[in-house]
Write a protein that binds this DNA or RNA. Sequence first.
DNA 1: GTGATTGTTTGGAAGATGCAAACAATTTTG
DNA 2: CAAAATTGTTTGCATCTTCCAAACAATCAC
Lengths: 255, 255
Amino acid sequence: MAKPDSPRTIQAVEINLNIINFLHEHERARITEIANELEWTKGTIHCHLATLLENEYVVRDGEHYKLGLRYLELGESVKERLGVYDVVTDELDDLAEECDELVQFATEEHGRAVYLYKKGGERAVQTASSVGKREYLHCISLGKAILAYYPRERVEEIIDEYGLPGYTDQTITNREELFDQLETIRERGYAFDDEEKIEGLRCVAAPVKASKDEVLGAVSISGPSSRMTGERYREELPDKVTRSANVIEINTKFS
Amino acid sequence: MAKPDSPRTIQAVEINLNIINFLHEHERARITEIANELEWTKGTIHCHLATLLENEYVVRDGEHYKLGLRYLELGESVKERLGVYDVVTDELDDLAEECDELVQFATEEHGRAVYLYKKGGERAVQTASSVGKREYLHCISLGKAILAYYPRERVEEIIDEYGLPGYTDQTITNREELFDQLETIRERGYAFDDEEKIEGLRCVAAPVKASKDEVLGAVSISGPSSRMTGERYREELPDKVTRSANVIEINTKFS
DNA sequence: GTGATTGTTTGGAAGATGCAAACAATTTTG
DNA sequence: CAAAATTGTTTGCATCTTCCAAACAATCAC
């Protein structure tokens, strides 16, 4: 009757992950608050939190619950596993100072870009994005720089999953147009974002590669369109961002 | 018949947390490996991993599974919630350079010390401890500095839970002796560790307080007993560590 | 090519889990 | 200050999950 839903998914775990996510978004929360929002009974949430407490994944603070330091530990573990984190932060700090614009590093996971680090120069634009923020790949320079080095089938898969939602009238919403541009990016070595996600914001990004066609992530520079013009936008910054990407590549190989 | 185990705990969630913990310890693992180690069937582990994948808490890498970047996001969230992280790292970097010894910051959670940051000077001792590492409170300077400002009942609770395990013949294993020393620490403002956890290692620690009797954590300096002697051990370093703790206190209040 | 691994998918039985309701303990309200 | 409305906690219970065992396809070992 119902579609044979394999892979089967476990309800109790999903409830629990939702609680974790709720605590992530709210910093601290009480039982009824969570129960109301997630639409499970108080008793249920109570048991779930008791389990998390027992295993020390969560902390009580009077009547409130908060995420525990174990997540700090797990985060650190993921950071180490990435193997590029320290190299990236060092290099991006330099790049940010040199350009005096917002510079960022992101990698792909589950078909979207995940920001890992950002650093703003003094007059840099402020964006909401920070560590862990997720974004579609097709509409940002970081994403296009990464996609350019993925096999076509993988890119198709990702488009099939998320589509090509438009944000401004510059966003690429056409499949073939995207593939054309990815080809150009691959030849040229870096990607532009000309107000494709946010009006008035231009970016350049270059991929960080582990080998001929394995991409670790990408570095980008973002700034207001008013400052991102002419030779600076078309040559100077692409050059800088590419060089930074290369520095990261090299330092990653030797560590 | 069985003891009325409330708070009731949810098995499916515990299995899941064990999987997460396994991936934390092993970086990457395949299904059967996890199933054998945790003693559940392949099918069960499969379903659990499918749920984690679906919710993007875990990543597939061919036949292997790894923790996802979401844990980086959660870790960052916990860091921000702490509110002292950046202040601590800045100050400890300075302190490490000034002393040329290992300096650390830890806080208490679930009755144990959790290390949040460490920085080694050039000739500093190398210890296994790093971010997220847990340690009993009674046998390290950081722990005693924290306990000294806890109400007696809370300290009793913690001892009841973990006991006072001995590591060297200097470890405090007697309840009253511990309370005596905590009193001294409270009067003096800092705590020593004279080879109480590790032979040949001496430490000094000072608490970082949020208010009169709320402790945020503690800062410590550790070094080989050969270098930690006389006036340096008894005055110079206690002075430095106390000053650093104060700097953190003040900077925390104004941010 | 055969045997032994994988990971995946089933059906089904047992038992865990989520609900509803009552609990005590606060807090809010009139 | 009492009444009313919250809170978190605990219980018994019905039912729906969940975990197991077994069979499956797909690799891998040799």
